[in-house]
């Protein structure tokens, strides 16, 4: 199977297992997905359905307690499994970036924000001198709405609020200008105004640099604001994928329908009867 020219990242019939107490359990089952060039693809689904696992596999991360039992992951025509560790690291540094879930915990606690940026930027802009590095870091930090970017460079990650740490992690990923940015719950810790600011920033970046994004979130309303297409994941499978309007406004799969119906709303109390049932064997719908 060759990747279509407009697909940047293709996942074909992927099955991923975790080892638990000596046994392999599959967490992702026969999943196929493509992120097109320049698009923002949303990914939503139950907690524990395998979204972060998918993100990590897309990044080519290899871990001992995990195996790809079947399927392939191709980035821009390159099969990630054929790459050596060093090539993968270079790819991750330059063309692929991840904002991990709970990004704050991913910041090295012993490094000041300035050093974190210097480390990240040095790989990309080797000719930048110290002052330029700092200026670029400040620019990135103010883009994500961090107050006092200059003072921030001299502080340690734990000296920021949870949401601020998350935005620092986002800024660190953005400053690499990757071709594909994977965002795992990037705005869950942000207030509505800050979240809107980040959404606008991502939309601008997509327009100006045609950055592709995979945006993982539970927040369907936010996904609907930013995504071109949306994939709904359930129990390790994609049960529905299509244009944002089709999936969210005219959902066809029962799980999606329940998910949309039970979105918490300001104007009406939640109705427990609408909640999606958990972990049923899903049937798939592809638009």
């Amino acid at each position: 199977m060759t990747a279509a020219a407009h697909d940047l990242m293709t996942v074909a019939s992927l099955t991923v297992d975790y080892r638990q107490q000596g046994q392999w359990h599959s967490v992702i089952r026969d999943l196929s997905l493509a992120v097109r060039r320049g698009e923002i693809l949303g990914l939503a689904g139950e907690s524990g359905c395998g979204k972060s696992t998918l993100a990590s596999v897309l990044l080519g991360e290899r871990r001992g307690e995990r195996r790809l039992r079947a399927g392939s992951v191709q980035f821009d025509g390159i099969d990630l499994s054929t790459l050596r560790a060093r090539e993968l690291r270079r790819l991750r540094g330059v063309r692929l970036a991840l904002v991990p879930q709970n990004g704050g915990a991913s910041l090295t606690p012993t490094l000041r924000i300035g050093s974190l940026f210097a480390e990240t930027l040095r790989a990309h802009r080797p000719h930048m001198n110290k002052a330029e590095l700092a200026a670029e870091a400040r620019r990135q930090l103010s883009q994500v709405g961090l107050p006092d970017p200059t003072g921030a460079l001299a502080r340690f990650p734990h000296q920021f609020s949870g949401g601020q740490q998350q935005r620092i992690a986002l800024a660190l990923a953005l400053c690499r200008m990757p071709d594909l940015l994977i965002l795992d719950e990037p705005t869950t810790g942000q207030d509505a105004m800050t979240r809107r600011g980040i959404i606008d920033l991502l939309i601008r970046l997509r327009l100006s640099s045609r950055m592709s994004m995979l945006y993982v979130s539970h927040d369907l309303a936010t996904l609907s604001e930013i995504c071109d297409r949306i994939a709904i994941m359930h129990a390790g499978e994609i049960v529905e994928i299509g244009q944002m309007e089709d999936v969210l406004l005219r959902p066809r799969h029962p799980y999606t329908r329940a998910l949309v119906a039970s979105i918490p709303r300001l104007e009406a109390p939640p109705d427990p009867a609408l909640l999606p049932a958990s972990r049923r064997t899903p049937e798939r719908i592809t638009a």
């Binding site: 001992g64 079947a70 099969d79 499994s81």
Partner: peptide, 20 residues
Amino acid sequence: MTDLSVLLESRPRPAGRRFA
């Protein structure tokens, strides 16, 4: 489509400290 399982399993990476 290539089946990766062989490729990946030929390079197993032991997990955790037990196998450190």
